[in-house]
């Protein structure tokens, strides 16, 4: 199994532990990752200029296509955005034409069949839960974990095809396979608050507060994420508060622990 690893902008700069732990876990599970000179996925410009966003995304797809690889990204916003770009390219031939012309100027071409995958579906469906279970050597038995789904991977389901939009199970399945106990919590599918952090910080705080409160009330010991934005939001929000924070773990960190990997290789102190 081989993928082009799309880290996006946030992971290397702000959540390096996510890159470390992703590489460590996938390495252990026999997934090969290739680094390509990708650029921004286009997410930041989505609100301002559709064409620029699609072009940025398409350029990445073209790079992966030239390397003959599918894309794996640990970032849910990059994931959703790249998939949205594919949709816009599919449904708007004029836009596609302009993007192809712009790519041709760089000797790049839109590839036919590049699949964009998020880390979690690759783990659950490509590597497979059984294979992961077989590799677990230090199960996290008894640890109560709430899984935060993250909007841009889950919805809109016809674009992302991540899991069932109203009753997803993939993240809980992946928590269970580490030996930990997935805890049910009503707000598991809600927004983490990050996307409105710049526009409306107080609204963002209320969204995050509601999630954290719900996670605590549900009896969680750990909140698991699989997106750098969500991870940053939960960590930074709780760091600013006075209460003792609910520990927030990136999923590959949790899995890495269960696979018996050294904390250092997972970005854990």
């Amino acid at each position: 199994m081989k993928y082009a690893l799309f880290l996006g902008c946030k992971i290397p700069a702000s959540v390096p532990a996510y890159e470390l732990s992703t590489r460590a876990v996938l390495g252990r599970l026999g997934v090969t990752l290739v680094d390509l000179p990708f650029n921004c996925c286009g997410y930041p410009v989505r609100s301002l200029d559709r064409e620029a966003f699609v072009f940025a995304a398409a350029r990445n797809l073209a790079l992966a296509g030239a390397a003959g690889l599918d894309v794996l990204t640990p970032c849910k916003c990059c994931f959703g955005n790249l998939r949205h770009a594919q949709r816009f390219l599919d449904e708007d031939p004029a836009l596609r034409q302009r993007v192809e012309t712009a790519l041709a100027a760089e000797r790049l071409a839109l590839p036919a069949g590049v699949t964009v995958e998020h880390l979690l579906p690759v783990l659950a469906r490509k590597v497979g839960l059984a294979a992961i279970a077989a590799a677990v050597t230090a199960p996290r038995t008894g640890l109560r974990v709430v899984a935060h789904y993250g909007c841009h991977a889950l919805r809109p389901s016809d674009v992302t095809r991540f899991d069932h939009p109203l009753a997803p199970t993939i993240f809980e399945d992946l928590v269970r396979v580490t030996g930990a106990t997935p805890v049910e919590w009503p707000r598991r599918l809600d927004c983490c608050g990050e996307p409105v952090h710049d526009a409306n910080p107080s609204l963002s705080d209320r969204l995050t507060q509601a999630k954290v409160d719900d996670a605590r009330e549900s009896g969680a010991e750990v909140l698991a994420t699989a997106c750098p934005y969500c991870q940053m939001r939960f960590t930074e929000f709780q760091a600013a508060g006075s209460a003792a924070p609910l520990p927030v773990l990136l999923y590959p960190q949790l899995l890495g622990q269960a696979l018996g990997l050294a904390p250092r290789t997972l970005g854990l102190s």
Binding site: C151, H152, L154, R155, P156, S157, P165, L166, L189, D190, C191, G193, P195, V196, L207
Partner: peptide
Amino acid sequence: ATCYQCQE
């Protein structure tokens, strides 16, 4: 918040 709940 672009959470896509409405669209979904």
